[in-house]
Structures are given as structure tokens and as C-alpha cells.
Design a protein around this nucleic acid. Structure first.
Lengths: 221, 221
DNA sequence: GTCTATACGTCGATAGAC
DNA sequence: GTCTATCGACGTATAGAC
């Protein structure tokens, strides 16, 4: 009994072990992202991920109970990255923890939305396989649920920019939440086409920006 | 041998039998639509559908190889109905086979888009369970594929209206296809929220219409 | 992590169509 | 008379609760 207890304590996860496991999990997730970017969801087999990460297939199942869980983790990682990039491009307040220099004029709603749309769409078109999985590819019920969070996160970025614009009189009266949500849906829908067919249509980003500015009611130049 | 052949001919599906089977398939699909509207996708079990249709569960599998196939058939049926309703509301050319009376002024782009958006959103909010399944609910990979067709069908309705408006100078220059696609995405995205939470927010339809009109560049009244 | 409950899909028997 | 469509109960897998 005493010995059993001792063993139990001894095998309890030490911080070091936990850290190693976390690092491994991160490594596997990054490997999965690489595979996804290169070969799309069709190529995302557990074996391929394991090979890319340099571990055995069994090891992957050690940290992720199944493919759905792994995919979900990958999804969360990618979403966090993309949201950060778009937020950085669109937010006027601060990037990371660095305050905006005092001599920089605050961005207008037009600038903020333009930057956010261009960043989002540009990144998506630069990594079409990944973006298509994120936006639309029929994958898995669990992933679909994650997609809802993903879209919400982007909508919140637009929402603050729009609310600021309305408050400042740059934009006509409107419900910022509705407009922001609609914008996210619009951008996603438009991108799915070029993404699915691997067309990097050059005109799609400017068209998207034009649509967004019209939809917000930005006064035409 | 001769007798076998005679029997075979005798038991070959006669038109009457085929018609009955087709009718049964339709009946099952309609039953599934009822269940879906009432209990949502969670309540759409094969047993519930069979009970609603007044047949045994085994019978359902006679016409549909599995749940995925049944759900796909239901999806197709619903989409066809909804597209027809929205097209009828939005098209200026003709409703069904009846030509528009000559004394009726052709609808403006503003009227056509307003009618289409109101019809689509109104019908969705009147049947939220069904609409949520159609638009966003994580269901099945096969259904996701169908959803793409569904959205495309709606986009085409908007596309013709927008193209006409641009050609007639009522709308500013734009790519009708892009705008139409974006509009479908925007409307769907906005509706998902109220639909998921069963809120029949009264203001959502007017806001959607306002968004759509701004996005098309319709001159503000 | 285990356990229970629900629901998908199958199978043999029966009844009815041709 | 033969074959097939229908029925409904059962096996099994999976998902959700504790």
C-alpha cells in the first residue's frame, strides 16, 4: 500500500515531463499544419502527420484520442494565428503590447476595415489549402463547431472598428454587430470559390474591399 | 427454364409498382421534412422518420441506402422549394409560367433584391429549425457538399438582378457574381445567430435589407 | 475512464403481388 | 406458385453522462 502510494507519487507528472509532453503536442500540431498546407485535408492522415513530426503513429494517439481531436487542435492553433494577424492589421489601438506611437494619427474606419479585409483575404489566398479547410471544406462535425468560434472571433474585430466609426460619425447609423457578422460571412463565401479551384484571381481582394466599404456605408471617394 | 423466364417477366417491376415505390420515397422524404421542422436535426432518427411516414424502419432502407442518403434527399427537396420561393419573389421576368402583365412596370434592382432578401430571411425565421440545418448546423460531410450547391443557387438569383441593375445604370459598376456571392454569405451568416438561439429578433430582416442595399451601392433615399 | 442508453443498419419471417 | 416487399425485433457501435 505504502509502496503503491510512493509509485503513484513518483509517476505523477512532474512539471518537466508535462512540459515535454506539451512540447511534443505542439510539435505534432505544427506538423499537421504543414501537412494540411501542403496536401490539404485529403492528405492529412495520421501516418503523414506522424512522419512529418518524426514520431511513431502510436505517439500521436498518445496525446490525441483520434483524428477529430487532432484536427480540432490544429484548427484552434490556426485560428489563433490568423485572428492575431488580422487584429494587428486592423486595430488602431495597439499591436501586441506595444502602444501605437503618439504621433501616428488614429486610423479611420475605412483604413481599419480595408486593412483587415486585405490581410484576411491575402493570407487566405497565399495558403489556399489551409484556408479552404478553415472556411468551408466538408470535414467533420467537430470542426464545424470550431468554425463557428472562428467566425465569431473575426466578427468581433470588425465590430469594434465599425462601432468606433459609427460613434465617430464616419459611418452611417447601423448595428455594428450585424454588419460585422455579415461582412465575415460575405468574405468567407467569396473566398471559397477561388480557394476551392485554386484560382488566385487577382481582382478578388480589391472587389472584396470595395464590397466591404460599400456595405459599411463609407462615403464614396 | 421457360417457367423461370415467365416468372421473371411477371415479377419485373411494372409501372404501377414503380409508381408506388416512387410515391413511397416521396412520402418518406416529406415525413423527414416534418420531423426536421418539428424536432430539428437532433430528432431526425430513422425510427422517427419511419413512424412519421407510417412504415417500418427496414422499409426506409429499401429506398435509401442509409441516413446520409435520406438526409441528402431531404436537403435537395427543401433547397428546391426555397430557391423557387425566393426566385419567384425576386425575379421580375415571370412567376412560374405566367408572364408579367404588360402594364406592370419592371421591378428595379432595389425592389428585386429587397424582395429576395425579405423572402429568404422571412422564411428562414418562420422555420428556424429547418433553416439552421440548411445553413450551418454541423451535420454530415455529404450534406456540406449539398450546401455549396444550395448557396450557389441563391447566388445566381441575386446575380441576375445585380447584373441587370448594373447594366441599367441603377447600380454602380461591380462584378455581379462577387457581390451576389458575398450577399449570400452575409445573409446566411447573420441568420445563423438568431436561428441557433431561436430568437426571432424583429429587427434582423430590416437590418439585412439595409445592409444588402448599401452593399449593392443602391443610392440612398 | 467506465457505463449506459440511444440509434443505425441487418435479418429472417410473413404476406401479398404477379 | 414463386418471388419480392414489408415488417419489426435484434446486434453493435458510438456518444454522452457521471
Amino acid at each position: 500500500m505504502n509502496q503503491w502510494f510512493t509509485s503513484c507519487v513518483a509517476y505523477r507528472r512532474t512539471p518537466a515531463v508535462q512540459a515535454r509532453l506539451d512540447a511534443q503536442a505542439g510539435s505534432i500540431v505544427r506538423a499537421a499544419m504543414s501537412v494540411l498546407s501542403r496536401d490539404g485535408y485529403a492528405g492529412l492522415s495520421m501516418a503523414a502527420v506522424a512522419a512529418e513530426a518524426g514520431v511513431a503513429t502510436g505517439t500521436v494517439y498518445k496525446t490525441f484520442s483520434g483524428k477529430a481531436e487532432l484536427v480540432t487542435a490544429v484548427f484552434r492553433e490556426v485560428v489563433t494565428r490568423e485572428v492575431a494577424a488580422v487584429a494587428a492589421a486592423g486595430d488602431s489601438a495597439r499591436l501586441g503590447d506595444v502602444p501605437v506611437p503618439a504621433d501616428t494619427a488614429p486610423k479611420t474606419a475605412r483604413e481599419r476595415v480595408t486593412a483587415a479585409v486585405e490581410t484576411f483575404a491575402g493570407r487566405a489566398l497565399k495558403n489556399p489549402k489551409l484556408a479552404y479547410v478553415l472556411l468551408a471544406e466538408p470535414v467533420d462535425t467537430a470542426v464545424d463547431t470550431e468554425r463557428l468560434r472562428f467566425r465569431r472571433a473575426f466578427a468581433e474585430i470588425y465590430e469594434t472598428a465599425i462601432a468606433d466609426g459609427v460613434a465617430g460619425g464616419q459611418l452611417p447609423p447601423q448595428d455594428p454587430r450585424t454588419t460585422a457578422t455579415a461582412l465575415v460571412g460575405a468574405i468567407g463565401e467569396v473566398l471559397v470559390g477561388p480557394l476551392a479551384e485554386q484560382l488566385e484571381s487577382e481582382s478578388v481582394v480589391p472587389e472584396l474591399v470595395a464590397f466591404a466599404l460599400r456595405a459599411l456605408g463609407v462615403p464614396q471617394e
